[in-house]
Amino acid sequence: MRSSTPFREALRTFRRTPLLSALSVASIGFSLFTIGLFALVALNFRHSLQNLAERVEVVAFVLRGTPTETITAASQDVQAFPEVLEVRYVNEEQALSRARQELVEFKDAYRDLEANPLPASLELRLKPEFRDARSAQAVAERLRGFPFVDDVRFGRDWVQRLDRLRNLAALVGLIIGLAFAIVAVVIIGVTIRITVLQRATEIAIMRLVGATNQYIRGPFLLEGALKGVLGGLLAVLMCWVMYAVFRRTASEVASGVVFFGATAIAIGLVFGTLIGLLGSLLSVGRHLKNV
């Protein structure tokens, strides 16, 4: 005689009603797929914002005639700022040769110069978590405190715009992501509810022979979790197919497009499982209350 465990019970449901089970896994899969697709867009958007943020740089121009030792000493202090990733000293000659290289239109003008008009500078790159307007501003203020610093620039408008873009992206992402998640919970709840209703007789019998609500709930929760995780796998698969198709058809623009990392996929599957659990908890709970 095979004794029943919640796990076996859950599997039994899959065996008994393969079509309904497949259908609910598919609907969970599709609702998670919409979330996944959205997350993929959000991920790539963030990725390109990060690439943009790479360019957040603070430049301190040095007063003419400052001894190199003073600057070298100071650049060590600057390197010690918590926000600073890297400090590069660019002396006057380097500045000029770089200008000649980069500003080709003014090549002649630079060639005919008798004296080098360009100042030396310290170029700072910030750590990724500090690439925002407020940190750049703070670093700039501190740099102005050095007596040999003439002027500090960090492209304030540009950094502020980047900040706003980031906040907006996070907000939109949160709202749409949440909306999709709620829709997914509802869909999963409905599909689990169909199974619950289909098994109403069995639940009634369970109650009559003295099963506790926890006992009755067990297999359904497991079933929900199982469907959630299968749906999650399906969603990851579909997202990957979309990603692959996009890369192939739009290869020029798609070169920088990224896919989820292992952690993100794991989080997605856990999320699917939780949604499955929540959906079945809600629908079974409602049913048990009504019986």
């Binding site: 005689m1 095979r2 004794s3 029943s4 039994r12 008994r16 007789t201 069995e202 009634a204 019998i205 369970m206 009559l208 022979v209 003295g210 099963a211 506790t212 006992y215």
Partner: peptide, 20 residues
Amino acid sequence: RLLEYRTVEENVAFALEVTG
């Protein structure tokens, strides 16, 4: 009120199982 997809034996055992 028997569970139709369980054997006679399993139907009876069911009442024991639910009580743990």
